[in-house]
Nucleic acid binder design. Structure first.
Length: 215
DNA sequence: GTTGAGCGTT
Protein backbone atom coordinates (compact mmCIF):
# COMPACT_ATOMS: atom_id res chain seq x y z
CA UNK A 1 0.00 0.00 0.00
CA UNK A 2 2.81 2.36 0.76
CA UNK A 3 5.42 0.74 -1.41
CA UNK A 4 4.37 2.32 -4.64
CA UNK A 5 7.54 2.84 -6.55
CA UNK A 6 9.52 2.42 -3.38
CA UNK A 7 10.50 -1.22 -3.48
CA UNK A 8 11.14 -3.51 -6.42
CA UNK A 9 8.20 -4.28 -8.65
CA UNK A 10 6.30 -7.38 -7.59
CA UNK A 11 6.11 -10.47 -9.78
CA UNK A 12 3.95 -9.80 -12.76
CA UNK A 13 3.00 -13.39 -13.37
CA UNK A 14 0.03 -12.96 -11.06
CA UNK A 15 -0.82 -9.41 -11.94
CA UNK A 16 -2.89 -7.74 -14.58
CA UNK A 17 -1.81 -4.47 -16.10
CA UNK A 18 -4.27 -1.82 -17.07
CA UNK A 19 -3.51 1.00 -19.41
CA UNK A 20 -4.96 4.35 -18.43
CA UNK A 21 -5.07 6.87 -21.23
CA UNK A 22 -6.08 10.50 -21.31
CA UNK A 23 -4.51 11.05 -17.94
CA UNK A 24 -3.74 14.66 -17.06
CA UNK A 25 -0.07 15.54 -17.14
CA UNK A 26 -0.01 16.75 -13.61
CA UNK A 27 -1.70 13.64 -12.28
CA UNK A 28 0.61 11.35 -10.36
CA UNK A 29 0.40 7.74 -9.22
CA UNK A 30 -0.55 8.87 -5.77
CA UNK A 31 -3.57 10.55 -7.25
CA UNK A 32 -4.60 7.45 -9.14
CA UNK A 33 -3.89 5.11 -6.29
CA UNK A 34 -6.97 5.94 -4.19
CA UNK A 35 -9.06 5.96 -7.31
CA UNK A 36 -8.04 2.52 -8.54
CA UNK A 37 -7.59 1.08 -5.10
CA UNK A 38 -11.30 1.34 -4.56
CA UNK A 39 -11.95 -1.14 -7.34
CA UNK A 40 -9.57 -3.77 -6.07
CA UNK A 41 -6.11 -4.54 -4.84
CA UNK A 42 -3.60 -2.46 -6.75
CA UNK A 43 -0.14 -3.92 -6.84
CA UNK A 44 1.72 -1.06 -8.41
CA UNK A 45 1.16 2.00 -10.54
CA UNK A 46 3.67 3.11 -13.09
CA UNK A 47 3.54 6.34 -15.02
CA UNK A 48 6.04 6.62 -17.89
CA UNK A 49 7.81 9.93 -17.86
CA UNK A 50 9.77 11.72 -20.48
CA UNK A 51 13.51 11.52 -20.02
CA UNK A 52 14.05 14.94 -21.46
CA UNK A 53 11.66 16.96 -19.36
CA UNK A 54 10.57 14.38 -16.83
CA UNK A 55 6.89 15.13 -17.29
CA UNK A 56 4.25 12.48 -17.52
CA UNK A 57 3.42 11.23 -20.97
CA UNK A 58 -0.27 11.28 -20.34
CA UNK A 59 -0.90 7.65 -19.52
CA UNK A 60 -0.37 5.30 -16.64
CA UNK A 61 -0.19 1.59 -15.93
CA UNK A 62 -2.12 0.12 -13.07
CA UNK A 63 -1.44 -3.44 -12.04
CA UNK A 64 -4.15 -5.34 -10.27
CA UNK A 65 -3.86 -8.52 -8.34
CA UNK A 66 -6.90 -10.20 -9.77
CA UNK A 67 -8.37 -9.98 -13.19
CA UNK A 68 -11.95 -9.59 -12.02
CA UNK A 69 -10.92 -6.52 -10.09
CA UNK A 70 -9.11 -5.19 -13.11
CA UNK A 71 -12.18 -5.75 -15.21
CA UNK A 72 -14.23 -3.96 -12.60
CA UNK A 73 -11.83 -1.05 -12.67
CA UNK A 74 -12.10 -0.91 -16.43
CA UNK A 75 -15.83 -0.89 -16.24
CA UNK A 76 -16.00 1.62 -13.44
CA UNK A 77 -13.07 3.94 -14.02
CA UNK A 78 -13.29 3.92 -17.77
CA UNK A 79 -14.68 7.28 -18.71
CA UNK A 80 -14.28 8.71 -15.25
CA UNK A 81 -13.48 12.36 -15.06
CA UNK A 82 -10.13 12.94 -13.39
CA UNK A 83 -8.89 16.45 -12.90
CA UNK A 84 -11.20 17.66 -15.61
CA UNK A 85 -10.27 14.99 -18.15
CA UNK A 86 -12.07 11.78 -18.89
CA UNK A 87 -9.64 8.92 -18.57
CA UNK A 88 -9.78 5.71 -20.55
CA UNK A 89 -9.05 2.49 -18.72
CA UNK A 90 -8.32 -0.66 -20.67
CA UNK A 91 -6.15 -3.74 -20.44
CA UNK A 92 -2.55 -3.30 -21.47
CA UNK A 93 -1.62 -4.67 -24.84
CA UNK A 94 1.96 -5.55 -24.02
CA UNK A 95 3.16 -7.15 -20.87
CA UNK A 96 3.30 -10.47 -19.08
CA UNK A 97 -0.39 -11.04 -19.49
CA UNK A 98 -0.51 -9.77 -23.04
CA UNK A 99 -1.24 -13.25 -24.25
CA UNK A 100 -4.57 -13.12 -22.57
CA UNK A 101 -5.26 -9.62 -23.73
CA UNK A 102 -6.86 -9.01 -27.08
CA UNK A 103 -7.90 -5.52 -28.12
CA UNK A 104 -8.01 -4.39 -24.52
CA UNK A 105 -10.08 -7.33 -23.38
CA UNK A 106 -9.22 -10.49 -21.59
CA UNK A 107 -9.27 -13.58 -23.73
CA UNK A 108 -10.03 -16.63 -21.68
CA UNK A 109 -8.34 -19.11 -23.90
CA UNK A 110 -5.92 -20.38 -21.35
CA UNK A 111 -6.81 -23.65 -19.69
CA UNK A 112 -3.69 -24.70 -17.90
CA UNK A 113 -0.54 -22.82 -16.99
CA UNK A 114 1.52 -25.24 -18.98
CA UNK A 115 3.05 -22.45 -21.00
CA UNK A 116 2.45 -20.55 -24.20
CA UNK A 117 4.47 -22.98 -26.23
CA UNK A 118 2.62 -26.02 -25.02
CA UNK A 119 5.79 -27.84 -24.19
CA UNK A 120 7.59 -26.16 -21.38
CA UNK A 121 11.18 -27.06 -20.65
CA UNK A 122 11.65 -25.93 -17.09
CA UNK A 123 14.66 -28.16 -16.67
CA UNK A 124 17.02 -25.53 -17.93
CA UNK A 125 15.28 -22.72 -16.16
CA UNK A 126 15.53 -24.48 -12.86
CA UNK A 127 19.23 -23.92 -12.72
CA UNK A 128 20.84 -21.75 -10.17
CA UNK A 129 21.29 -18.07 -10.55
CA UNK A 130 24.93 -18.23 -11.43
CA UNK A 131 24.12 -20.88 -13.96
CA UNK A 132 21.48 -18.71 -15.54
CA UNK A 133 23.84 -15.81 -15.75
CA UNK A 134 26.49 -17.95 -17.28
CA UNK A 135 24.07 -19.21 -19.86
CA UNK A 136 23.03 -15.72 -20.75
CA UNK A 137 26.58 -14.62 -21.03
CA UNK A 138 27.32 -17.49 -23.32
CA UNK A 139 24.38 -16.63 -25.50
CA UNK A 140 25.46 -13.07 -25.69
CA UNK A 141 28.97 -14.09 -26.57
CA UNK A 142 27.71 -16.34 -29.25
CA UNK A 143 25.37 -14.11 -31.18
CA UNK A 144 25.42 -10.62 -29.86
CA UNK A 145 29.16 -10.36 -29.87
CA UNK A 146 29.46 -11.58 -33.40
CA UNK A 147 26.44 -9.99 -34.92
CA UNK A 148 26.25 -6.66 -33.25
CA UNK A 149 29.85 -6.58 -32.26
CA UNK A 150 28.80 -4.13 -29.63
CA UNK A 151 27.11 -3.81 -26.29
CA UNK A 152 23.54 -3.69 -25.18
CA UNK A 153 23.93 -0.09 -24.24
CA UNK A 154 23.99 0.84 -27.84
CA UNK A 155 20.80 -1.01 -28.44
CA UNK A 156 18.98 0.99 -25.84
CA UNK A 157 20.41 4.17 -27.18
CA UNK A 158 19.26 3.31 -30.66
CA UNK A 159 15.87 2.41 -29.37
CA UNK A 160 15.44 5.70 -27.62
CA UNK A 161 16.64 7.59 -30.62
CA UNK A 162 14.27 5.67 -32.82
CA UNK A 163 11.40 6.48 -30.53
CA UNK A 164 12.24 10.13 -30.52
CA UNK A 165 12.63 10.18 -34.23
CA UNK A 166 9.35 8.39 -34.68
CA UNK A 167 7.54 10.77 -32.42
CA UNK A 168 8.94 13.79 -34.16
CA UNK A 169 8.51 12.36 -37.61
CA UNK A 170 4.85 11.78 -37.00
CA UNK A 171 4.35 15.49 -36.96
CA UNK A 172 2.27 15.54 -33.84
CA UNK A 173 1.42 19.17 -34.23
CA UNK A 174 2.88 22.13 -36.07
CA UNK A 175 2.62 24.08 -32.87
CA UNK A 176 4.72 21.58 -31.02
CA UNK A 177 7.64 22.00 -33.36
CA UNK A 178 7.22 25.70 -33.50
CA UNK A 179 7.21 26.01 -29.76
CA UNK A 180 10.30 23.97 -29.34
CA UNK A 181 12.03 25.80 -32.11
CA UNK A 182 11.20 29.12 -30.58
CA UNK A 183 12.54 27.97 -27.28
CA UNK A 184 15.58 26.14 -28.60
CA UNK A 185 16.28 28.65 -31.29
CA UNK A 186 18.29 26.25 -33.38
CA UNK A 187 20.61 24.81 -30.78
CA UNK A 188 22.72 23.20 -33.47
CA UNK A 189 23.56 26.43 -35.15
CA UNK A 190 26.36 28.54 -33.85
CA UNK A 191 29.06 29.50 -36.21
CA UNK A 192 28.87 26.99 -38.95
CA UNK A 193 32.56 26.46 -39.00
CA UNK A 194 33.09 23.95 -36.26
CA UNK A 195 29.93 22.01 -36.98
CA UNK A 196 30.35 22.29 -40.69
CA UNK A 197 33.37 20.12 -41.19
CA UNK A 198 35.69 18.34 -38.88
CA UNK A 199 39.10 19.90 -38.82
CA UNK A 200 41.20 17.42 -36.98
CA UNK A 201 44.36 19.34 -37.70
CA UNK A 202 46.53 16.46 -36.58
CA UNK A 203 49.69 18.28 -37.32
CA UNK A 204 49.68 22.03 -37.60
CA UNK A 205 53.28 21.83 -38.61
CA UNK A 206 54.14 22.24 -42.25
CA UNK A 207 53.73 19.08 -44.22
CA UNK A 208 55.79 20.74 -46.87
CA UNK A 209 58.74 20.63 -44.62
CA UNK A 210 58.33 16.96 -44.04
CA UNK A 211 57.81 16.28 -47.66
CA UNK A 212 60.73 18.35 -48.53
CA UNK A 213 62.78 16.39 -46.10
CA UNK A 214 61.55 13.09 -47.43
CA UNK A 215 62.34 14.02 -50.87
C1' DG B 1 2.93 28.50 -18.36
C1' DT B 2 2.57 24.74 -23.60
C1' DT B 3 0.71 19.31 -25.84
C1' DG B 4 -3.44 14.79 -26.27
C1' DA B 5 -2.35 9.62 -30.00
C1' DG B 6 -0.82 5.93 -27.76
C1' DC B 7 1.28 0.85 -24.70
C1' DG B 8 5.59 0.80 -19.46
C1' DT B 9 10.42 1.57 -15.45
C1' DT B 10 12.61 3.38 -11.52
Amino acid sequence: MSHLGRSAPPPVRDSYSLLVLNVPFRTTADDLLPLFDRCGEVINIHIPRDRRTGDSRGFAFVRYKYEDEAQKAVDRLDGRTVDGRDIMVQFAKYGPNAERINKGRIVEDIRKPRGPFGSPSPKRRYRSDYRDRDYRDDYRDRDYRRSRSGSIERYEHDRYQERDYHRRSRSISPDYDRRHRKNGRSPARRSGSQSRSYSPTPSPSRPRDERSRAL
